[in-house]
Simulated assay, not measured.
Amino acid sequence: MDFELYTDVVLLQDIPEENLRAGDIGVVVDRHDIEGIEPGYSLKFFDMLGETIAVVTLAGSLLRVPTHADRPTVRSEAMSA
């Protein structure tokens, strides 16, 4: 799937080394095309106050577009450790 720059995407699997979990919402900030390989995307993830918590580059297959069925959730840093 193609994702436009500056759109929200939903993470499909945990990325423990970045303290990200499936269902977290990130913003596409760049697209990376390498011939013969699926597109990759640089993403920014924010906390509820707008502070950046992670910047990662992931394959497009690890992302999806949000739907009306999605609901934001809150987890504290202490709970995610």
Rank of each mutant, 00 (worst) to 15 (best):
D30P: 00
L62T: 13
R21M: 14
V29Q: 07
T52C: 03
L12N: 11
F45M: 11
V65Q: 08
V56Q: 06
N19G: 05
G60S: 06
V65C: 02
A81E: 10
P66Q: 04
M48C: 04
E38M: 06
F3D: 11
D2E: 09
I53C: 01
L49I: 00
V65K: 05
P66T: 03
D24Q: 08
T73V: 11
T52Y: 01
I15A: 07
I53F: 02
V28E: 10
R75W: 02
A54T: 08
V74A: 06
E51L: 03
L49D: 09
P16H: 06
V56W: 02
I37A: 14
R31F: 00
N19T: 12
G23F: 01
F46T: 03
H32M: 09
E35D: 06
Y6D: 10
L49P: 00
L20K: 02
G36H: 01
E18H: 14
M1E: 05
F46P: 05
V29K: 13
V65M: 07
V27P: 04
M79Y: 04
D2S: 14
P16N: 09
V28Q: 11
H32R: 12
I53K: 15
A54Y: 13
F46Q: 04
A81S: 07
I34C: 11
P16K: 14
E77N: 05
S80E: 04
I15E: 14
V28L: 13
A81G: 03
T57I: 12
R31E: 15
A69V: 04
K44A: 10
E18R: 15
R21N: 12
V56L: 11
S61N: 09
S42L: 08
V29N: 06
V56K: 03
L11F: 03
I37V: 06
L11R: 04
L62V: 07
T57L: 11
Q13K: 09
D47S: 05
L62W: 00
G60Y: 09
V29E: 11
A22L: 01
E35Y: 04
E35V: 14
S76R: 08
G60I: 02
E17S: 13
L5H: 15
G60V: 02
Y41T: 05
D30R: 10
V9T: 00
D24A: 08
E4D: 12
R31I: 03
A69Q: 09
E4K: 15
A59P: 02
A78N: 03
D14Q: 00
A59F: 12
H68P: 03
D14L: 06
L5E: 09
I25Q: 11
G60L: 07
E4M: 01
F3E: 09
T57S: 14
I25F: 01
F46I: 01
V29H: 02
A22R: 12
N19E: 05
D30S: 12
R71H: 10
L5D: 10
P72R: 13
L58H: 05
S42M: 14
M1G: 15
G36R: 00
T57V: 13
V10I: 13
L11D: 05
D47N: 12
L62I: 07
V10D: 07
L49Q: 13
